[in-house]
């Protein structure tokens, strides 16, 4: 579906994306990265609003820049807020459909349907200037899906949504991804995790990793991960773990012992048993290893050279 062939985008001396070589088949992908990591540049290359300085970009086998046929197949929901204050949501979505080349009568029906799908039916005749941020997000989503695109590109679609809105949009996108493709950029992991089975991790314009959560866990083998233990005897617990040789670094903080280990399995097998034998009570053991957040943090630290 999407190919980036050693794609680099420079803004003068600033690198937007850096030598990304990637092939994405049809499906749903979460594009993850902190603010300023190059997510929007990546998306703009895909939706044909930027040209790569080096390398190539292909979407459905075609160059996206100024590709009008491709624009009919892609729906875009950018991060930018819409500021047509004295235009109703319906008028704006209908306008987008007319620009897609859809004749006026049909455009009106399709706009109504799209706004209904995003829960904006009741407010669609009101001016957008009076919309809440969440309502504008829903309207933005409606304009992106209204022409029934094959690929939906969303940049921070949950910004400003309340919990109900987040749930509704999450459910909508989960439904969408069943038979359509989707790229969702966000810096909030759990939002992406709930929708996309595959991820692209991007930092400083570089692709750190890509694949499913399980595939990325494999990348973690041999990479130190952090574990926090709570105990009444933190110093004794720390000494014990050092003696067992299952930790690489130990840090004490009140009743907490934060350790770094490369072999979580061995750590989990040996430390609780040894502590019980020594009469050291462990009240809590926290490891974020089964969440994407940990994976993400670890990859970023690895990229920054903070981990060996």
């Amino acid at each position: 579906m999407i190919d980036l062939i050693h794609a680099t985008k420079l803004y003068g001396p600033v690198i937007g994306v850096n030598d990304i070589d990637l092939r994405l088949e049809t499906g749903a992908y979460g594009l993850l990265g902190p603010n300023g990591s190059g997510k929007t540049t990546f998306l703009n290359l895909v939706i044909g609003q930027l040209r790569p300085t080096l390398g190539r970009v292909r979407v459905f086998g075609e160059t996206p820049w100024n590709n009008h046929d491709l624009f009919r197949r892609v729906g875009v929901c950018p991060a930018q807020e819409v500021l047509y204050a004295n235009v109703s949501g319906f008028e704006w979505v209908e306008y987008g459909l007319k620009l897609q080349g859809i004749e006026p009568g049909r455009a009106a029906r399709m706009a109504e349907l799209a706004l209904e799908r995003t829960g904006m039916s009741d407010a669609m005749s009101r001016f957008m200037g009076g919309y809440s941020k969440g309502m504008r997000q829903r309207t933005k989503l409606a304009q992106a899906i209204a022409h029934d695109p094959e690929l939906l590109v969303l940049d921070e679609p949950f910004n400003g949504l309340d919990p109900i809105g987040r749930h509704d949009i999450t459910e909508f996108l989960r439904e969408w991804r069943r038979n359509r493709s989707l790229i969702l950029a966000s810096h909030i992991l759990h939002e992406v995790e709930a929708i996309c089975p595959s991820f692209l991790l991007i930092l400083s314009g570089r692709l750190l990793a890509s694949g499913t959560a399980d595939e990325m866990q494999l990348l973690m083998a041999g990479i130190p991960c952090d574990v926090v233990l709570s105990s009444d005897q933190p110093a004794e617990l720390a000494r014990l773990m050092i003696e067992l040789g299952v930790v690489e670094a130990v840090r004490l903080s009140g009743d907490d012992v934060q350790v770094s280990t490369r072999d979580l399995d061995r750590f989990a097998r040996t430390v609780p048993q040894a502590a019980r034998r020594q009469g050291i009570a462990i009240h809590e053991l926290r490891t974020p290893e089964d969440t994407l957040q940990s994976l993400f943090n670890t990859l970023i630290r690895l990229h920054r050279g903070e981990l060996a």
Binding site: I47, H68, F71, R72, V76, P78, Q80, V82, L83, L99
Partner: peptide, 15 residues
């Protein structure tokens, strides 16, 4: 300025 450009530019012949 109103950040609406990209919504127009991604349409066929939008620009």
């Amino acid at each position: 300025e109103s950040k609406t450009w990209v919504y127009l530019a991604v349409r066929p012949y939008g620009r």
